[in-house]
Design a protein around this nucleic acid. Structure first.
Length: 482
RNA sequence: GGCGCCGUACCCAAGUGGCAAGGGAGAGGUCUGCAAAACCUUUAUGCGGCGGUUCGAAUCCGCCCGGCGCCUCCA
């Protein structure tokens, strides 16, 4: 089995074959930075984080580009999204962009996402976008009207190939078009004339203006990944019109295919309904993190497939929370036991068929990144490890470390939910905390030896309130943060 | 109206022709001073409904019911 992924362009799973052997160029539509990220962004970017991580795990050298939209994204009424937010907050649009960008990375970092290799900003690539528009005008795919430039969808026969529609079909469902500058209602803006009050404006061959939303992704993806590249990703809701327009612009400008594989993640719902601006049911990641650890949110997302919708509820998140604890408990106990084993000479090897777990895991991931099945494999392994650890047998350090290495490899490197084993970097204040807890644990051990249960329980209950969980095992008490 | 998706246990969620993964919750048990954790057993003869194809269907086909998405800002 090799990696197969579902390509929206062909509507089927295809074997993945990169343009250049050993190298993958991937572009993912990033956020428009005007307000804090919500859980939907979380699902989307966690999904592509997995794609990137897995490709790297398979040995590909991956160049991961994800744009930052800070201009050109217009609302219904034609006002720029960034400008409107700036007006509401009485700040410069670039202040908003900067603040939200930091907030975005903060949230993504918290969930353990690998950062994109390049995060190009639309406002920083105006020149490239103008060049693209010029090329389209030169080739006759676009036309200028009153300082604005539009793409003429009638000139591009393949328009609609991604989303599976035709221009004729679209005409039927079209609402009343307000702006009459366009030749056809489906034509979309490549460059817009800036009205006098428009702050974000740049000089161009057609006068002062700003780029259309779709142009940035074409210009920036091709700048960093080449005219034709491997994978383009984004949310299902951007399939049309955004990605359709990207394809039209790019392929017409260069005369060659744009992205080979299109990957779209499905959306997050709340009570069965899409989380969206207009419905007003969005849950920001920062709010979610107040209730649940970011890694819980991450596991929750991974426990459903990226092409399925995911219904967000506290009850479901609580399930993921317990699941993560179970998995991390196993890892913790395994490492504790391995550490003990290192000081002793133990002969018994923990007989677990690690290769079978690895191959089951890889088979799941190869099948269009089936993370629900992959995580199920980890839970199966977790159960077998727990069973072994509860036996009287003392296993050798080497065999325990081999299990830990696999868990770290699959659960850590690929899925990003198992922390690295080396806790070498304990901070000074954490060290103090650990020492204090250990002191209490030792005192309690003496109290327990004297069977002073009420006092013993007071210590345990008191620590519990402070978020420290004590577990009395056969050979001593262990503690962890709950 | 056009195009498309989904409906699997109490909750979340895999599975697209061959005995229904996994997580959570529940029940019983083992261990334990108690608790926690863990382990074992258990929880859908059943996959929205009705037909059809097939030796065999959650999986393929048809119809019906219910929910949702895109066509307009959205990840």
């Amino acid at each position: 089995m090799s990696l197969h992924l579902y390509n929206t362009l062909t509507r089927q799973k295809e074997a993945f074959k990169p343009i250049h052997e050993g190298f993958v160029g991937i572009y993912v539509c990033g956020p428009t930075v005007y307000s804090d990220s919500h859980v939907g962004h979380g699902k989307s970017y966690v999904s592509f984080d997995i794609v990137v991580r897995y490709l790297r795990y398979l040995g590909y050298k991956v160049l991961y580009v994800q744009n930052i939209t800070d201009v050109g994204h217009l609302l219904d009424d034609g006002e720029d999204r960034m400008l409107r937010q700036a007006r509401i907050e009485k700040l410069h649009p670039m202040q908003i962009a900067e603040t939200i960008l930091r907030s975005y990375f903060e949230d993504m970092d918290a969930m353990g996402l690998v950062r994109p290799d390049i995060s190009p900003r639309a406002s920083g690539h105006i020149t490239e976008q103008i060049e693209l528009v010029k090329a389209l005008l030169d080739k006759g795919y676009a036309y200028e009207v009153n300082g604005s430039v539009y793409f003429d969808v009638r000139k591009y026969a393949d328009y609609g190939k991604l989303s599976g529609r035709t221009v004729e079909e679209m005409l039927e469902g079209t609402r009343v078009e307000v702006r009459s500058e366009k030749k056809n209602p489906q034509d979309f803006a490549l460059w817009k004339r800036a009205e006098p009050e428009h702050i974000m404006r740049w000089p161009s061959p057609w006068g002062e203006g700003f780029p259309g939303w779709h142009v940035e992704c074409s210009a920036m993806s091709m700048k960093y990944l080449g005219e034709q590249f491997d994978i383009h990703g984004g949310g299902l809701d951007n399939q049309f019109p955004h990605h359709e327009c990207e394809i039209a612009q790019s392929e017409c400008a260069t005369g060659r295919p744009f992205a080979n594989y299109w990957i779209h993640n499905n959306l997050v719902t709340v009570n069965g309904q899409k989380m969206s601006k207009s419905i007003g049911n969005q849950i920001t990641l920062k709010d979610a993190f107040k209730k649940f650890d970011p890694l819980v949110v991450r596991l929750f997302i991974l426990q459903s497939h990226y092409r399925s919708t995911l219904d967000f509820s506290d009850e479901a998140l609580l399930g993921a929370k317990s699941g993560l604890e179970k998995l991390l408990n196993t890892v913790r106990n395994l490492r504790t036991e391995a550490a003990k084993a290192r000081g002793e000479s133990r002969a018994a090897a923990a007989a677990i068929d690690l290769e079978s777990y690895r191959s089951r895991f890889l088979a799941a991931m190869d099948d269009d990144f089936n993370t629900p099945q992959a995580t199920a494999v980890l839970f199966d392994l977790s159960r077998e490890v727990n069973a072994l650890l509860s036996l009287e047998t003392k296993f050798s350090a080497a065999s325990l470390e081999a299990i830990d290495a696999l868990l770290e490899d699959l659960g850590g490197r690929v899925l990003g939910i198992v922390p690295e084993g080396s806790h070498a970097g304990l901070r000074a204040d954490m060290k103090l905390e650990a020492d204090l807890v250990q002191l209490l644990v030792d005192l309690r051990a003496e109290v327990r030896a004297q069977k002073l249960w009420p006092l013993s329980d007071r210590i345990r209950d008191g620590l519990k309130k402070l978020g420290i969980v004590l577990e009395d095992k056969k050979d001593g008490t262990v503690w962890r943060k709950g």
